[in-house]
């Protein structure tokens, strides 16, 4: 809170009644944004937008400035979040609605799947999980624990089996059970490993043999503490699987996850969920303004 206040009062003093933002203000804004992992490119873009606004509107008050700042930053985030924290809705005309979860190693894919399954189940939807991470040690057991916790069925094979085959089985099983939602876990993989990225493309293709135009949602999970490399992750996973939404995890720590602003802007992918802990309830629907506000408050 201290940082937030001091930042805005500094900003206010330097800008109110002026028609141009001075360097000192821009410097502290740059510090706040870069320190939140927004990145230099996106930070420059935000600063340009604010300068343009200040130039146009002239003689701003602190309140207005505060608002403009948040608006301009949030404006880069793709325009699709509902802002309703309990909104875990899925399209009704797609049954089963298939979500494939992808991302680099250790970002929180499996955990996010457990939390999501819980939310869907709470809404009365019939959920099936697919354990298509057949590579990492005890990855299947980990998803099994989540399936048991949420009390939803899981489709699994042996460790080392073909992930595409698991995904195929999962969809087949979901169709025969008349399930509403299918969530497919995949192994963590670094986006510069061509073979592993091709494997994902294949998993996707094989699923389409069971239900056409699946997966309906390819959810890329990003670790909130990741820096600029997340850009490359978004780029490469999009190339391999056409990512349709983002989840940012581990925002219960001091990391701010600011890199998603530039990603959402550049690739036009909405952020849907944020992870705020390891518990089953620790998932939230993404809220732009709260997210942007967190850059200016100090948890550390």
């Amino acid at each position: 809170e201290k940082t937030k206040t001091s930042f805005f009062s500094k900003l206010g003093k330097a800008v109110v009644g002026k028609s141009k933002v001075d360097d000192e203000v821009l410097d502290s804004l740059e510090e706040v944004l870069v320190s939140s992992d927004v990145g230099v490119n996106t930070t420059l873009k935000i600063i340009e937008r604010i300068e343009a606004r200040v130039n146009r509107d002239k003689y701003l008050g602190v309140q207005e400035l505060n608002l403009i700042l948040r608006e301009e930053i949030a404006g880069l985030l793709s325009e699709t979040n509902s802002g309703d924290e309990t909104d875990y809705s899925i399209p009704k005309d797609k049954k089963p609605y298939v979500i494939m979860v992808v991302g680099v190693n250790g970002v929180g894919k499996t955990t996010t799947i457990g939390k999501l399954a819980y939310q869907f189940k709470k809404k009365g939807l019939k959920v099936v999980l697919g354990a298509a991470d057949t590579f990492r040690a005890a990855a299947i057991d980990q998803l099994q624990v989540w399936a048991d916790r949420v009390d939803v069925p899981i489709v699994r094979q042996e460790m080392g089996s073909d992930p595409a085959s698991v995904a195929f089985d999962t969809l087949s099983s979901a169709v025969s059970q008349n399930a509403d939602v299918v969530i497919i876990d995949t192994a963590g993989r670094l986006h510069n490993k061509v073979n592993l990225m091709n494997e994902l493309t294949k998993v996707k293709r094989v699923m389409q043999k069971v239900v056409a135009d699946t997966p309906h949602d390819v959810l890329l999970v990003l670790d909130g503490s990741t820096g600029q490399n997340a850009f490359e992750q978004a780029k490469q996973f999009t190339k391999a699987t056409e990512v349709t939404s983002l989840a940012v995890t581990k925002l219960d720590g001091t990391a701010k996850g600011g890199v998603v602003i530039g990603i959402s802007d550049e690739f036009q992918i909405p952020v849907k969920y944020i992870g705020v802990g390891e518990g089953i309830e620790d998932l939230q629907v993404f809220n732009k303004m709260e997210f942007v506000d967190s850059f200016f408050s100090n948890k550390a």
């Binding site: 320190s35 250790g106 503490s225 820096g227 600029q228 490399n229 720590g253 701010k256």
Partner: peptide, 12 residues
């Protein structure tokens, strides 16, 4: 520590 960590690395 994950080598992809961003600005938060110092805090942690």
């Amino acid at each position: 520590v994950d080598s992809m960590t961003g600005q938060d690395a110092v805090n942690t």
